[in-house]
Design a binder for these strands. Structure first.
Lengths: 190, 190, 190, 190
DNA sequence: CATGAATGAGTATTCATTCAT
DNA sequence: GATGAATGAATACTCATTCAT
């Protein structure tokens, strides 16, 4: 459906692009967006010039990283929505977004920020996810599994916030589960 | 060598220091920590030299700002603990921390970060608050108002996360209240 | 008449600013505008930061250099106009501009370029000179010493062009005089 | 080792080379020599690699462009010299050089610069033209149409300078003619 | 003590040129 | 031969911090 605007990249170029995205994802996630471009390029095993050939701006690189994340989430979200009952799908997706958003918070907040001030590609991805989320929320509310007064903005804010909560909590699975218990119970009516 | 660690500042010096803290609080909160020191100094009506005389490092300034915030929170927390029933005190303090932490998130996360990697002064303030929070949590759990399995780390992470949630939600009071409903209900047993 | 917008610079700052202007004039004139800012700063005995404190942009530095030149020319032009008969004043000024414009041509062309696309300060200086030139041209034409059909644009273009001619001719005074003979005789009626 | 320095280019290679020269001439003339090589290659419909196969250096491309121009001028100059009386030929050639040199000045100055610091091919072309110019100048001086004291260096400098004059004057034909009147009258004896 | 000028390491980005496809 | 991806040195500008006035 989407126009094939780009010619298929040469094999090595595609490899470099993918490597850059992987490295940038890792680096932005663990150390924030302040990391020098040169370092990202070096970690990807290419020169700075190559980085800037693929992403004309550091911001463009960041955007590409986020778009890829959001698209991955959108895909999984759609799967879950198709496979599960509304209520289960809603909570499964909530979990999914939280787990995928791990890492530096400035980064995880992309989902929300995209709606406001980001560039086209990001807004597109963000909008797609938000559509899915709205549908999931609505389904769960109709099924009586989520407080009816909550809107999409609150849901998104809660996703971002819970992601932050988890980030500060660390990896302990039991503790993370306790947070999910709190949030999920709080989301249910009454 | 002298017993007193700090001599009493001259009146104007004290005024400058206070003004710098006020301005820095405002600036860091609304525009993040990336703002140049010169701009902070100018906004405070002093030269950069003066800023660096009072705070030897930009980081030290940030720390001082946070310490002041934490101390204010600690004070109010103690008050509330003294005035209210345990359960009410707990929830009132939760609200208080969230409202006080408004602003750029990088900043709000100081509370938690302080426990991990921060400098002495910050750790001190943070520890004080954490002691209070631990007491409040314990009181509320004994009163049966909060899930007994939650520990201090989860509480702190939830405070940071909920602060982020609110930041992304904006100012709409009704929506903010809905978030408090979710989190507070979720915190309660069952 | 002009508002004293700037406070008097500190002695050292004024010295640095002047040194930077001198060095930049020399460097731009002999080697063109492509010379790195760092090199200019080093030649002036200051750090790059200092250069950029005084001139927020490389372009601003270039502009300042040109403004200073134009102002010097304007001053001398006014003197000559006051001291000499119209015809003599005109030719003396022509000579003056040519001699002062020595150096890389891109630079000498400022006079004309300023009228078109330059910044405020430059336009101001350029306009001042052009006013003087127009008066001189008019005087010389009334005195019958210059072809009446020539306008200010042609005069300015001739100044720039003759400057280029001289630049390519080098320093030989006899040859330069021969060029002046050609141009001055050509400017006269008939 | 083989006698012929250049083997005959394959048809497409020759086409590419010609296209590159055309495009580069246009681009250098209208936008200066700062234009990136990639852009020139793209405008010529080839890859950068091809550009660098034909011209090992950006400078070499610039040189080739200038050589072609100079050769064109040399050809026309020779024609004019053969067809016209010495005096007329001289002035016609002067005009010709000026009109052909239109465009960014840095470029037009090649003629003169070539004599000084350029590469072999350029010097060759330049020398050819200079020989022609010297002959024309001599003829016109013998015919009493040009001041006898002028030498070839002055003539060349005047060509470059007048080219600059025209460039700054723009396209207005009447104004351009007035400049020619000035210069040509100035060139004549007395 | 206050000031703000000076410093210079650090950073994003460009572009001539090389080389794998 | 042609292509365009890769390279990395080069460059303008920023900003925390120091120090002369």
């Amino acid at each position: 459906m989407s126009g094939a605007t780009e010619r298929p990249l040469r094999a090595d170029a595609a490899r470099n692009r993918a490597k850059l995205l992987d490295v940038a994802t890792e680096v932005f996630t663990t150390r924030g967006v302040g990391v020098p471009t040169e370092e990202i390029a070096r970690a990807a095993g290419v020169g700075v010039g190559t980085l800037f050939r693929h992403f004309p701006t550091k911001e463009a690189l960041l955007e590409a990283v986020m778009v890829r994340r959001l698209e991955a989430i959108a895909t999984r979200t759609a799967q879950l929505a198709a496979e599960l009952e509304p209520a289960d799908a809603f909570f499964a997706c909530f979990r999914l977004v939280i787990e995928q958003s791990a890492g530096k918070n400035e980064f995880a907040q992309a989902l929300a920020a995209a709606g406001v001030d980001a560039h086209a590609a990001l807004q597109q991805s963000s909008a797609t996810i938000q559509t899915h989320l709205a549908a999931l929320l609505d389904g769960a509310q109709r099924a009586g599994a989520v407080r009816p007064e909550l809107g999409l903005p609150e849901l998104i804010a809660l996703l971002v916030g819970t992601s932050t909560t988890m980030e500060h909590l660390g990896a302990d699975p039991a503790a993370r589960q306790r947070i999910f218990d709190v949030v999920f119970d709080g989301l249910r009516p009454r």
